[in-house]
């Protein structure tokens, strides 16, 4: 087995501690056909490869990286997505997913990450907006729309 280069062990330990929340976040913002672990690993790799001296809040930096990786991946797969949509699928969502989950995945990845950070993880809107690469007003607007869309799909599923 190839040996990992000598890294600062406290730094790697810090990444291990961040793994779980970042993995959940990657699962939220990433395409369904992209493994969350791969996104997290790529974000870690780029963090370790780059100039880390300017990065103080590693968690926020890595979230931002994951959002960018996820959205860039999405952009490249636009053609594939178009095919999915033509075939009736949403964002590569497996047909076995419940419709409410499909609707959740239909929300823009960045907006979905924002909604998750604010409504589930309890981040302040401003911090979540920064992590997702959005301005404050744009984030507020995106939150409002995403909440509305999600609420509507849940209500529809519940037959109300």
């Amino acid at each position: 087995m190839q040996r990992a280069p000598q890294w600062d062990e406290p730094l790697l330990s810090q990444l291990r501690n961040l793994y779980e929340p970042l993995r959940r976040f990657a699962a939220i913002v990433g395409r369904v056909d992209v493994e969350p672990d791969d996104l997290v690993q790529e974000a870690f790799t780029r963090f370790l490869s780059g100039d880390r001296s300017a990065v103080i809040d590693i968690g926020a930096y890595l979230r931002r990286s994951i959002v960018n990786l996820a959205t860039n991946e999405r952009r490249r797969n636009r053609r594939a997505e178009a095919a999915h949509i033509r075939l009736g699928a949403v964002d590569g969502v497996d047909d076995n997913y419940p419709s409410a989950l499909s609707d959740l995945l239909a929300i823009d990845a960045r907006d979905r990450g924002l909604l998750y950070m604010v409504d589930v993880e309890g981040f302040p809107t401003q911090d979540a907006a920064q992590a997702c690469g959005m301005s404050g007003p744009a984030a507020r607007m995106a939150l409002s729309r995403a909440r509305k869309a999600l609420r509507g799909s849940i209500e529809m599923e519940q037959g109300r």
Binding site: L12, R16, P36, F44, L48
Partner: peptide, 18 residues
Amino acid sequence: LAQRGTTRGADSVVHAAA
């Protein structure tokens, strides 16, 4: 949604990234 995919674990992911 947060639990989807195959989990390789923190040690494996960090090691591969390093």
